[in-house]
Design a protein around this nucleic acid. Structure first.
Lengths: 235, 235
DNA sequence: TAGTGGTCTAGACCACGCC
DNA sequence: GCGTGGTCTAGACCACTAG
């Protein structure tokens, strides 16, 4: 099977953009130029450009051309992907508590499912920093289902979810969240290096996974002063 | 100026869907049927259907047809449909400022698009209460595109977005948000009936719409103490 | 005025789903 | 086999931007 024409043109242009041949603000070749260059009709050229439009690489300007724009990020922190992909590359992750099996301290997790109250729990806690600035404390719990050697695995790209996916073939298929603005308590303030009673964003998340009896609970405490939590969503 | 053909077909189908003539799971008329019915070519029929696809009303099934689907309601953090459906039925909405045309106070909206800096703006501000408790201040801006009689329309079910959809055929197709935990300032504290310097959740939202030059900007100030902001997401 | 993108026509062939 | 949507051609006219 040979590649569709509009896909080929789209990929060609996308590569050029990603390699910097066309930078932000530059105009791509016009539809008619693409027609000549690739021996296609305008319908096909337009379809290729429409793909780039839909994917957020360009915007079209009537009478001028197709302009490369700053690409929006995909699903942000608050949807499914986790922290590593959300904030960018300059992220440091420090384990405050490496993964251990614990008896559950049920006062911490408020919305615990009944069937999850019985067993032991994996727990780990991390501090996320942007540059040298601590921005988020992340506490995670999940029940003791079979994750062979979980204690000893190192996280792929510091991402728990990526590790679940690639090592255990477990996918996140949904989440539900509650968000609160709160005063930082003593412990949180100390770790985030902010004053006690500073406003912090507290996010409680339940992640639903492709394994039916595995729910992951996370409690996040964010200092949003320098780094607000972001989120993008497109249908 | 007469209406574009694909817009006319799109609106016709959208009305049928909103009125329930085509319910979830039903198939719309095929592309060839639309061609005959409206005396158009398949390109135009497809463009109309592609609009409905982009706006989340249908999905296309190769070899079968265009199927009406449950329109995705949750756009990232908050629901697209606005507050009314988000918190439940016991919601009261009070206009602090009815829709008016204003010169823009650009200090309020941080991430304003360049082309949006020129014109006048529609602005309105509302207070959302659960029972008798004020929980959210909602400020909205959008550029002065043609929304006939907007000043005088009453919102359908108190929902700005539902009104946009059903009266003007404008759909929300995406959003990008920033969340911050902040201290309540004097004005916000007074309206929300909380103490000054209480922690509040400040959400800045840009809504992308199906009208290319219409972006809606919202600034939300939430007292999350009794009513945390919630969100569900499923793939 | 020349070039650009936006809309639209009238065809064609193909791959998929279903009977 | 037939109808469906997916891709593609070869044109046309229009509205917008700019020199």
């Amino acid at each position: 099977m040979t590649e569709l024409k509009y896909i080929a043109v789209r990929n060609f242009l996308k590569e050029q953009i990603q390699q910097g041949t066309f930078g932000v603000g530059d105009f791509l070749p016009s539809e008619n130029e693409l027609c000549r260059k690739f021996s296609i009709t305008r319908t096909t050229a337009r379809k290729a450009l429409d793909e780039l439009l839909k994917e957020g690489f360009i915007e079209k300007k009537h009478g001028k051309g197709s302009c490369v724009i700053e690409r929006r990020k995909s699903l942000g922190l608050l949807t499914v992907k986790g922290f590593s992909e959300a904030v960018g590359k300059n992220v440091k992750t420090i384990f405050i508590q490496k993964p251990t099996l614990q008896k559950l301290n049920s006062s911490i997790i408020t919305a615990l499912k009944d069937e999850d109250k019985k067993s032991d729990y994996w727990f780990f806690e991390r501090l996320r920093c942007v540059g040298e600035t601590p921005v988020m404390i992340e506490k995670n719990w999940f029940s003791n289902i079979s994750l062979p050697k979980f204690k000893d695995v190192s996280f792929i790209d510091n991402s728990f979810f990526k590790t679940l996916s690639q090592k255990y073939f477990i996918e996140i298929i949904g989440s539900s969240q509650e968000l609160r603005a709160e005063f930082a308590n003593k412990e949180v303030a100390k770790i985030l290096q902010i004053e006690i009673h500073s406003p912090i964003l507290h996010i409680s998340v339940q992640f639903k996974t492709s394994v039916s009896n595995l729910t992951i609970y996370s409690e996040l405490y964010c200092n949003t002063k320098k780094f607000p939590i972001g989120n993008n969503y497109y249908i």
